[in-house]
Every structure is written in C-alpha cells, then in structure tokens.
C-alpha cells in the first residue's frame, strides 16, 4: 500500500507576524515547525505501513527551507520526501494548493491513501484535504479520529462530527484528514535521524507534475488578500479596582444583578 502524507511547514504560531503592506505572513526570522496536525497524519501513515507493508511518501509544497519537514518525516519513518518548490507555486491559496498537491499525487501514480492534517494552523482553512480529493475525483473523509478497518480496497473510519461521530466506509484510493485523537506521534529515534540526514529530497517544479501554468501559485488563486487591518480597540468596560477581595465582591455584586 502506498500512502502519501501531506505535510506543511508553518511558522510557529506563537511567533507569527504579518507584513502590513502585503497582508502576507512574514516568514523570515520565525521558527518553522511541521504543522501539528500533520504529525498525526504522518504517524498514521507510518503505522499503516508497519502493520501492512508498503511505502510512505511525505509531500510538501513550500519554499526550499520546507525540505526540513520532509527530513523530519523521513526520521519518523517515511520512505521518501518530495518537495514541491518553485517560484511559480508561490502565493497559492487553497484552490491552487490542492491542485498542485493533487498533480503531484497523480504523478506518483500508484497511491492508495492520502492523509492530510485536519487543518494547517497558519491559515486554518481545513480546505486542502477535500480539495485534493475533489481534484482527483476521490472519496474523502474529514476529521478522522479512528481507522476501524483498512483493506487493499476499502477504508472504514470514525469521523468526528459536531454531535458525535459517524462510521463511514469508502473505497480506496481515498483522501482523509485527521484529528489529534487519532494517535500519538512518535519521537524519531537515532536511526531515523541518521537516515533523514542522508536522505535525498527531490524538488519538483510545475513541469515535473505537468501542472497548468494558470492553475498554480498566485495566478491560479481566485482569492486575494484585499487588505489587512487591526481590529478596533476601545476600552468601553468598567475596571474594578482594589484588593482581590474587593474586586471579587464588586464583580459578584454586578453579576448577581444581571
């Protein structure tokens, strides 16, 4: 079974800043990490391989520096990492991103299962997983918290819903997005790290995946950041002063009166 885990390199959310002019995220000078949900995607892919045999490909689109998350993926047990990196991919919104990732998956050819994180913590859209599926005309299941059954031809999974969960069956190949409850990502061992250090990470551009020029990057992105702004700030409330006891008393008096 060939499993692709889509992993995104994201700036550490606690350090993020925005370029006021362009409205784009400033990526310089901020630590980069693997999108937390994608660790669970990767972990699941590696577990499936360990249980059933097969291979795991980690796939990422991003700047050259995103090579690092693919090495991390190899350290965790992925057999190979592929980086989609090219000036022309830059500025992609979720439509262009899903198209690009889908083209790469199509290029890999024999893929049985694509696993994405539920969402990327920088954009938080949760759109790329279903978007990849739609591009490839494959079934998708979002918010998978447990895989109940997996054979060469079908997948039965528990999908988190707003009110509980649903058990859904799809045929393979398919795309799933996963939540944190699914598993506990492993810490790479020394052997994994050695392998990661030596791993070749191929870099693919638009030609390698036969992508249409007007469907990638900024050009292929229907949505545009029109402007960014700071939300209005004005203090309209009442500050309660005094010792903690006085503050607590004043607050309780007001809340009781409601």
């Amino acid at each position: 079974m060939h499993i692709v885990a889509c992993i995104k390199q994201v700036p550490d959310p606690s350090q993020a800043r925005i370029d006021r002019e362009t409205g784009l995220v400033i990526r310089e000078g901020v630590d980069k990490i693997i999108n937390p949900y994608d660790l669970h995607a990767l972990e699941e892919a590696v577990r499936i391989k360990e249980a059933r045999g097969g291979k795991v490909t980690a796939l990422s689109m991003g700047p050259r520096a995103a090579e690092q998350v693919l090495r991390d993926a190899v350290a965790m047990g992925a057999d190979q990492g592929i980086l989609l990196s090219d000036r022309r991919f830059a500025g992609a919104d979720t439509l262009a991103t899903s198209y690009t990732l889908a083209r790469a998956i199509a290029k890999l050819g024999d893929v049985d299962l694509v696993i994405c994180g539920k969402q990327a913590v920088d954009g938080d859209t949760a759109q790329v997983g279903p978007g990849i599926a739609a591009n490839l005309d494959l079934p998708h299941i979002t918010q998978v918290r447990k895989i109940r059954e997996l054979t060469d031809s079908k997948l039965v999974a528990e999908k988190l819903t707003d009110r509980g969960y649903e058990v859904v069956e799809v045929s393979l190949p398919a795309v799933i997005t996963v939540v944190k409850e699914l598993n506990e990502p492993r810490i790479p061992g020394l052997r994994g790290m050695m392998r990661a250090k030596k791993a070749e990470i191929p870099v693919w551009g638009p030609e390698d995946i036969e992508a249409e020029a007007d469907r990638i990057g900024l050009k292929g992105s229907p949505t545009q950041v029109w402007r960014t702004f700071e939300p209005e700030r004005h203090r309209k409330g009442e500050m309660l002063e005094g010792t903690p006891e006085e503050q607590a008393a004043a607050l309780w008096q007001r809340l009781r009166a409601l």
Partner: peptide
C-alpha cells in the same frame, strides 16, 4: 489573519 491581532479582508 494568521497570528497576532490582525484581520484580513479577502
């Protein structure tokens, strides 16, 4: 918008 106290209009 991402991180910090910013809103984005798309």
């Amino acid at each position: 918008a991402f991180g910090g106290n910013l809103m984005a209009t798309i």
